[in-house]
């Protein structure tokens, strides 16, 4: 019995190890290579472990490549989309949490249906609309399209948080003469604040990753987020890996930091969101 257990544990650990090595291989490889001088990067691979650590690439990337500008754009997109989503979603989540209205099921269906479709499939009419509105190739195109894409998730999250707040509270406030908007602002949002923060940060993390929508609507380098800026560096003939790899890591650091802070909600949100479908 005892040896059987040892065998089982050994198997589980080997499996976990193989899984983790597979999961981390490209990230690890990119990371250690980003810490090599360019000449060292472009020599035939003979080891998986670095023998020197060199930070020069990171410094030169930050100084020469328009990365800081593009990271600023990424931040503008992420923050704007989060703000729009929280504002719109707190209203719709209030409606879902407190009213039983006709068309509620249809509304939920519409929300879910948006998650089934990639913007790429709708790009022609969207592009026409953005050109006509003068929004093509501006921040607004990406912010509007990505906000619409994140609304389902944020409405779902806030709805769940609002449901945990007792209805008696808003009833009392109604009697005291509060308007509905005041109820949302003063009664629902304060106790739901941790939930609102988590939702905000999760939309932030999701929007930080945005790539397809900016590729479709942004061709002006001024408005490119870092993900697209890095893609632009991947030329056909020559790829400056000493630029691309450090830039990639700099880009994901803020997002991974936020992701780490809210990891237990991500796990919950990932599976809860999926199970709800």
């Amino acid at each position: 019995m005892k040896t059987k257990h040892v065998f089982k544990y050994a198997l589980l650990y080997v499996l976990s190890l193989v899984y983790l090595i597979f999961i981390f291989l490209p990230i690890y490889d990119g990371f250690i290579s980003s810490l090599q001088p360019y000449s060292k990067m472009l020599s035939f691979r003979t080891s998986l472990f670095p023998d020197t650590i060199y930070f020069g690439n990171y410094i030169s990337v930050w100084n020469h490549f328009p990365l800081s500008k593009q990271l600023m754009n990424t931040a503008i997109y992420a923050i704007s989309v989060s703000i729009i989503c929280i504002s719109f979603a707190s209203l719709s989540a209030y409606s879902l949490s407190r009213f039983n209205f006709k068309g509620r099921v249809q509304f939920l269906f519409v929300l879910l249906a948006t998650q089934m479709i990639s913007i790429l499939l709708l790009v022609v009419p969207l592009k026409i609309m953005m050109i006509k509105l003068g929004l093509d190739n501006t921040y607004f195109a990406v912010i509007l399209v990505d906000s619409a894409g994140q609304l389902t998730f944020s409405t779902w999250m806030l709805w769940a948080y609002f449901d945990t707040i007792p209805r008696d509270l808003d009833e009392a406030a109604l009697v005291d003469g509060c308007t509905r908007l005041q109820i949302i602002r003063k009664i629902l949002l304060p106790p739901a604040l941790p939930g609102v923060m988590v939702t905000f940060l999760m939309v932030f993390v999701a929007e930080w990753q945005s790539f397809t929508v900016p590729i479709l609507f942004i061709s002006n380098r001024e408005f490119m987020p870092a993900t697209v800026g890095i893609y632009e560096q991947l030329g056909e003939l020559l790829i400056r890996w000493d630029i691309v790899l450090p830039a990639s890591f700099i880009t994901i650091i803020p997002e991974l930091a936020v992701g780490y802070a809210i990891q237990k909600y991500i796990v919950g949100g990932l599976t809860a969101g999926a199970v709800k479908y």
Binding site: L245, S248, L256
Partner: peptide
């Protein structure tokens, strides 16, 4: 979870190198 929260386009960059 890390590959899941790393942007897909950046994951693709790492893979292109690896």
């Amino acid at each position: 979870l890390i590959p899941w929260i790393t942007p897909a386009s950046i994951c693709a960059v790492f893979w292109r190198w690896a």
